[in-house]
Simulated assay, not measured.
Amino acid sequence: MAAARSSRSTGTRGRGKTASVIAQVSWREPRPAPIVLVSGPEEVCAERAQAGIRNYLRAEDPALEVHDIRADDYESGLLLALTAPSLFAEPRLVRISGVERCNDAFLKEALAYIEQPQEGATVLLRHTGSSVRGKKLLDAIRQGTGGGIEIACPAIKRDSEKHDFAMGEFRAAGRRIAPTALRTLVSAFADDVTELAAACQQLIADVETDITDEIVERYYGGRVEVSSFVVADTAIAGKHGEALVALRHALASGADPVPIVAAFAMKLRGMARVAGARESNSALATRLGMKEWQVDRAKRDLTGWNEYSLGLAIQAAARADAEVKGASRDPVFAVEKLVTVVATRQPFGG
């Protein structure tokens, strides 16, 4: 377990936080140590990390004892009692939740415990980062006291982060999914990473072949229809009627015109950035600060477009953006005009 220590600093973890010198371990590849700090707000990643550590330890010894306690409702002496060796010296895993709300009794005993962890015991502490409570304990662990490791679970918020998360789900399972199918899946569950994870796992479990656009549509078509990106993708592909139908479904499902226009603007900007470029996708992605899949998608989206039509669409998106944000009394009509210009690649009414 001593190998979990790292002599290289990973840098500060934000203003006022102590630089970490312990090993940083991916939540996708968790491993045990005397002290395991699972930090950050992304609960689906934290749950995977905790389950992974339990499975790792149980594979080493099926006699593993697992105990769950709460740091905010802690009773003195409990940590030592649960980590102490039993008569037959079975390995012990003690999972402690709510460290960000810990009471004084827990904080005092946890600080003392990490100075001399019990042999054969793994103590896992879950801190969401929602408060600074327990900071003294976290700082001590990050400085190497107790021979611990940290598994960071930062929030997954941006589209690129959600895309990387979903791609990681399929890659970890050794499965392949079409880039467009992945994009559709991510946009369908853009509001909830937990639901996105569940959708990925369902496809992995149910589908034996490579996962295509048709498969994602069959499973999650009802959700996909209300996606802003589906409206934009359909219009950019030149499918005017289908794009208007998708727009109506999106609006009927409660979608707001503002993010729909934002989806158009983002995709059109990406197309404009790669238009005419002769570099490889990887080189272009590095130069433009884009993901390689984004470059590939933007290039494919450019099929059938030219400099004039792309400029026309970008102008229409800028006009629609102003209109849905207050410059027009009818934001829905503003989006309909944008869909028509993009899908037909002609001026509205032209």
Rank of each mutant, 00 (worst) to 15 (best):
S253D: 10
R171E: 13
V332K: 14
E208G: 13
Q50E: 15
A155I: 05
F333C: 09
S86M: 08
G146M: 00
D321G: 03
R133A: 07
A84H: 07
T12K: 10
A51G: 15
L288M: 09
L124F: 02
G134E: 11
E119R: 10
R158F: 11
P30S: 04
A188D: 01
A322Y: 07
A318M: 03
A298P: 12
A4Q: 00
S20F: 00
A272V: 05
E161I: 04
F165G: 03
G120N: 03
S26W: 02
R248A: 12
S280T: 15
I314F: 05
L125Q: 08
D164T: 13
G14T: 05
P257Q: 04
A232T: 08
T212R: 11
R273F: 10
F348E: 04
I149T: 07
D233R: 08
R54V: 15
A121S: 14
P179V: 13
V186D: 05
L79Y: 01
E115D: 14
R183I: 10
V216F: 09
E208P: 10
L182W: 00
G52E: 05
E217Q: 14
L185K: 10
T234I: 09
T234D: 02
G238I: 11
D210A: 14
K337V: 14
V261D: 01
A155L: 09
E323F: 08
A4T: 00
A298L: 05
H127P: 12
A316D: 01
K267E: 11
E65A: 12
R297D: 06
D68L: 13
L185D: 10
S160P: 01
V207S: 12
D192V: 09
I149L: 05
D104Y: 04
S26R: 11
N281S: 13
L284N: 13
A317V: 03
A190W: 06
F264C: 03
L247Y: 04
S253N: 12
L137S: 01
Q202Y: 04
D233N: 14
A343T: 06
S187C: 12
S309L: 07
L79C: 01
K291D: 13
T209F: 11
S187M: 07
M271H: 07
S97T: 15
L78H: 14
